[in-house]
């Protein structure tokens, strides 16, 4: 998850052009993605991704990173959590409308690699409230956006996390990895 210093994951109109990347950071993100074999999305993030990743293979401007990620994400099983979405156009995708907790618990019991939730701040907040998240990865970008789509909202309780790792990149991004767990007073 790429986050601004003031806690936004996107600008007011969904802009993500402010996100800082460099080769080192991209490589680490790709290794993280490779620990997973299933992608989870909220509706807004899903629709953004659905309109982009299937086109990458035929795009002359695609970077090596774009191609690497498209090779992972296009065939991977994808789940979009939405009550309103009727149809999906991206291969290997299914819609889950309800009973999020039960669905995730069921998926976690299956053999395989990790489940990865991309961006999707609204769904992420729901996951947090349901205590479904084992690990958090935040890339803190050196910019104050001023306004936008916030990462954390509507949390119904205080939640303590455990810092597992931090890494500083040359471009000023600091990546933080936390384990999620219930607050122990």
């Amino acid at each position: 998850m790429h986050v601004s210093l003031d806690g936004f994951v996107a600008g007011p109109n969904g802009e993500i052009d402010w996100v800082y990347f460099d080769d080192d950071l991209i490589e680490d993100v790709q290794s993280l993605v490779n620990t997973a074999d299933t992608a989870l999305f909220g509706r807004v993030t899903y629709q953004l991704m659905e309109s982009y990743w299937p086109t990458v293979a035929s795009s002359p401007t695609a970077t090596k990173h774009d191609l690497d990620h498209s090779h992972w994400v296009n065939p991977a099983p994808k789940i979009v959590f939405s009550r309103t979405l009727k149809q999906v156009h991206w291969q290997n995708t299914r819609i889950v409308k309800d009973h999020i907790g039960e669905e995730i618990t069921r998926l976690q019991k299956q053999p395989g690699k990790n489940l990865i939730l991309f961006a999707s701040p609204t769904l992420g907040s729901t996951f947090m409230n349901l205590n479904l998240i084992d690990e958090y990865f935040f890339n803190i970008n050196p910019i104050v956006l001023g306004k936008g789509k916030p990462l954390f909202r509507d949390q119904n309780e205080m939640r303590r996390l455990k810092l597992l790792e931090s890494k500083t990149y040359k471009n000023g991004v600091v990546s933080l990895r936390y384990r999620g767990r219930k607050l122990e007073e």
Binding site: D6, W18, P142, I143, V144, L145, G146, T168, G172, V173
Partner: peptide, 10 residues
């Protein structure tokens, strides 16, 4: 709801 974006240097 700040009006301006501020780029910072780590």
């Amino acid at each position: 709801n700040a009006e301006t974006m501020k780029v910072m240097k780590l």
